[in-house]
């Protein structure tokens, strides 16, 4: 069998597996980028002991615990507090002044994973004196990860990195004010946690989410194919007030998207866009 045929056969098996997951559990990964999905599936296949993807599909259908393990593989997005400090600096300079003009501000972190970036934004809003007029929503499709985000507990060995990021991002205080630490972990202060409503929302299958002043969706669209990206960008457009901001990951782009005309770049390098009025 030639190599193209082998790859193609492998692809058929994976497509069937994703179809099965969708029918059984309602999670739709069919429009995720294939290379990413394939890698996560390969990893789970190897440690599952299943002989091939069809055996794995069988196990997935009859064993929900096994499915939940796979769901975690497919939803883990490794982030940091103040990841890409340059982005936070740019947001402080350009987006915060705009937010000040509103009596009440709604912010949405779409695909928030374990919550690091949502907490980062809350810290910045607090330092800028805006937090009391903000409602911050943070959503993800994985309940286990949402629970982690609500806990706000991060390994202590990450805190050094978070602190460096915070300082580079133009943080105004001592980062230690925002958490309490024991030997192994750091716990985000309750007063910050109270500011965020962590809730379930699936970008693939759920609809418009309120009238937001700003949406953060950083390093989530990279896992979606063009069709799904377009659909989600349209969802963001419909969920923003006119002139509202959309913040994407620094290597993401609207270039190839049907929606590129709906937004205007504000800070192109940091992928900060604005909904056209």
């Amino acid at each position: 069998m030639n190599e193209e045929k082998k790859v193609e056969n492998n692809r058929i098996e994976i497509d069937l597996l994703l179809e099965g997951i969708h029918r059984k559990y309602g999670y739709d990964f069919r429009n995720y980028t294939n290379a990413h999905i394939k890698r996560r599936l390969e990893y789970r296949l190897k440690i599952s002991g299943c002989k091939n993807y069809m055996a794995m599909l069988h196990k997935l259908i009859y064993n929900e615990v096994f499915f939940n393990e796979l769901l975690l593989d497919l939803s883990i997005n490794v982030s940091e507090m103040f990841r890409d400090p340059g982005f936070y600096q740019a947001a402080r300079e350009t987006v915060i002044p705009y937010l000040r003009t509103y009596p009440f501000i709604k912010l949405w972190h779409a695909g928030c994973s374990a919550g690091q970036e949502a907490y980062s934004m809350v810290i910045m809003l607090k330092e800028e004196g805006l937090i009391d007029k903000c409602q911050v929503y943070a959503t993800d499709f994985n309940e286990l990860i949402l629970a982690k985000a609500r806990d706000g507990i991060y390994p202590l060995d990450q805190i050094k990195k978070y602190t460096q990021n915070y300082q580079k991002a133009g943080g105004k205080r001592s980062f230690g004010e925002y958490y309490t630490a024991d030997y192994h972990s750091a716990l985000i202060r309750q007063s910050l946690k109270d500011r965020i409503l962590f809730t379930y929302h699936n970008l693939v299958s759920d609809g418009v989410f309120g009238e937001m002043n700003i949406i953060f969706c950083r390093n989530v669209l990279i896992y979606f194919d063009q069709k799904l990206q377009n659909k989600v960008l349209k969802l963001f457009y419909d969920s923003l007030v006119p002139g509202g901001y959309l913040c994407l990951g620094t290597k993401e782009s609207l270039r190839f998207s049907d929606c590129s005309q709906l937004f205007e770049p504000v800070i192109p390098d940091q992928k900060i866009f604005r909904k056209k009025r």
């Binding site: 692809r11 980028t33 294939n34 290379a35 982030s79 390093n219």
Partner: peptide, 17 residues
């Protein structure tokens, strides 16, 4: 970022572990 090549021969990025 990880850099991946899709079977359709375009690049994708990922922040998986």
């Amino acid at each position: 970022y990880h850099m991946l090549v899709e079977e359709e021969r375009f690049l994708s990025l990922a922040v998986t572990p």
